[in-house]
Amino acid sequence: MAVTEEIRPNADALLHAAPPRRPANMGQILRWTLLFLGGIAMVMPIAYMISTSLKWPHEVYNLQLIPDEPHLENYTYVLEDGRFYGWFINSIVIAVVTTVSNVLFDSLVGYTLCKFRFPGRYIVFIAILSTLMIPTEMLVIPWYLMSQQLGWLDTYWGIMFPGLMTAFGTFLMKQFFETVPDDFIEAARIDGLNELQIWWTVAMPLVKPALAALAIFVFLGNWTAFIWPLIVTNSVEMYTLPVGLSSFGDEADVAWELIMTGAAISTIPTLVVFLIFQRYIIQGVVMAGLKG
């Protein structure tokens, strides 16, 4: 009895005591610090973008984050400027068409390279991959000459054609199709589907996460593309958002508050695209139909 009575208070104390503090680990401190700094580095540009969009022109070069007199005049100005809608529509059309095109054609080529055995398959794959090594800056001149000869300068087609299919997308999709077991394809073949039907009905739904990732990459890439649209467009009406926004201001001054306002508005579609597709990325659907 005596022993029990002695032990009980100690047990209660242990139950209600806070968990013992472990001495801070240096590695952990370093990790958290790096993560914190990384977070700051990512958030600050967005914070300054929104902050600047709420400032008056004379405050723009004042680096304080909270404006002295925040206002929405810049948003009113940009949204009432007819050019902005045109650029917005241009960017939407170009980003959507190139995204759809990439999702379809990159996956079609990736699927073919992955699931069909034909002579030269490896060479074709390497040839496609090797184009990844050529920087855009080197390609814009041939692209421009092609556009000029085909009469595509200052047209949607001219802006879009270099990005309608990408080597990166083809590579990404090929790698994802590798995870689709051949049994699925063969089962569909026995069930009487032709090769195009198998690709569309069986293989594509199984790589939805990859398609979503590709859609996000391509959409963002084209939405923010600057150099090529700047080169290939001449008329203000054909500008895309990034090109159009950069033209705010005059020769003497750059209207940063308006550029930042336009940039803030232009992030909305990218957020929408991300929110639509991100749930597919975190879905692992392929394995569910296989052995448990």
Binding site: P181, A187, I190, D191, G289, L290
Partner: peptide, 27 residues
Amino acid sequence: IAMVFQNYAIYPHMTVRKNIGFGLRTA
């Protein structure tokens, strides 16, 4: 002919009804 595979090869994105009916898609 019809074939049953070692790994089942039933389509994870389709319901059981659709999976069973898949063989009749082209019928």
